[in-house]
Nucleic acid binder design. Sequence first.
DNA 1: CGTATCTCCTGCAAGC
DNA 2: TGCTTGCAGGAGATAC
Length: 276
Amino acid sequence: MPELPEVEVTRQFINESLSKGDKITKVELRRKDLRYEIPTELKPLIKKSKFITVERRAKYLLWVFDNFQIINHLGMTGSWKALGKNNTLKKHDHVIFTLKNGDKLVYSDPRRFGYIDISKAPYNETLKEHRFLKHLGLEPFDKKFTGQYLKDLSKKTNTPVKTFIMDQKIVVGVGNIYACESLFTAGISPSKKASRVTLEKYNVLVKEIKKTLKKAIKTGGSTISDFKTGDNQSGYFQMHFKVYQKTGKPCEKCGSLIKKIVLGGRGTFYCSKCQR
DNA sequence: CGTATCTCCTGCAAGC
DNA sequence: TGCTTGCAGGAGATAC
């Protein structure tokens, strides 16, 4: 389940595989849709464009070419991997980019919750105007993402703090895993009303979100189900999970058992003693 | 308007 | 052993 760290690791991998000015010599679509239809213009646009770089906004990969961009969300199970010349394609390999040296970059997505869209607007305009990007909140590493920012926005809402920090209109990139983990290290109960969390606690939470995400990026992301970094290395942040999917296991701080509840339809893991 | 629920999809694990 | 069932969840769409 790609959250910000997994998307960031993927971004770095793609940028290591492609250089500025490169052409993608061949595009193969093995199906015409993922979550949405893949624009038919994708192929001709790639053919006549040069790759510049891949950026990340929230959980989106933005493939920047000299005259358009690809907006690419990995959904739940999407991933990009390198395919050597002799490897065969697998069942859920849907999109294949062939590079000039013959290597292939393959988009694989068993559940097809991911999507690929294109934008021909200038890059900055795409960020501001594209229907998937325009409503996005602050990047967690933005200097403006502070405890005060969360405190101010939380005054208007009735939702639990966990649902609040997973709301992409507030802060982006924090999905279920990193919300659970950050709330644990910040010592905040996931079900506490966002409006009742103090400024002091929000200051701690912001620090913990940044720390958790940074650590996860460093360790290659979390390998749950089949997320792998592009060169087929498993991330190993899952080794560092303190509460996520630890139901019934002892809390590493206090020894009481980790509980699971459902918030906003999502499995939520926490220590009822350490998180208040 | 905010908030909750439904929905897409497949693989896997649990339970009978 | 082999079936059914339920769960995993990002986030847009829909309903209230």
